[in-house]
């Protein structure tokens, strides 16, 4: 076992991990942050997306040992300071961007990474950025719409398909 220390959602945390412990497992099992979901466990579905040192990564395909010393942000750290939903989360609710909700943490984290890089993405850019996030309920349309709305763009012209 090796000791790892990282900053998760602004708090310094540490724990003992095996070499093979995934970052996703460390967050969920050691830290109790079960908002980060393990969907496919093969780095395809994106339900496990978190930010490591400010960029989106699939936490099921990164070792906890590799995140030693890093800054990690998960879905649990996304709400506003007063506990209300942040602009992306609120947009997902307003535009019905989720049904079962399993993919939603990863979708929100990918959306946050996209909007940091590209504050006013086109619909095409949103769809391309979500290539590694799979949703089996929504057909993506309302997810794309929610992210466009969260970026402050008018989405009334985006028809429900």
């Amino acid at each position: 076992m090796t000791k790892v220390t990282m900053t998760v959602n602004g708090k310094t945390v540490s724990g003992d991990v095996e070499g093979r412990t995934l970052l996703a497992s460390f967050l969920r099992d050691d830290q109790g942050l079960t908002g980060t979901h393990i969907g496919c466990d093969t780095s395809q579905c994106g339900a496990c997306v978190v930010h490591v040192d400010g960029v989106a990564v699939k936490s099921c395909t990164m070792l906890a040992a590799e995140a030693d010393g890093a800054t990690v942000d998960t879905i649990e750290g996304q709400a506003n300071a007063d506990g209300s939903l942040n602009v992306i989360q609120q947009a997902f609710q307003d535009h019905h961007g989720l049904q079962c909700g399993f993919c939603t943490p990863g979708m929100v984290m990918s959306a946050a990474a996209l909007l940091k890089e590209n504050p006013k993405p086109s619909e095409q850019e949103v769809r391309e950025y979500l290539e590694g996030n799979i949703c089996r309920c929504t057909g993506y349309h309302n997810i794309v719409k929610a992210i466009m709305a969260a970026s402050g763009q008018d989405v009334t012209a985006i028809a429900a398909e």
């Binding site: 990918s110 950025y129 996030n133």
Partner: peptide, 9 residues
């Protein structure tokens, strides 16, 4: 290559 999260690693 891959998707944005894969490209970050």
């Amino acid at each position: 290559i891959g998707d944005p999260a894969v490209r970050n690693r």
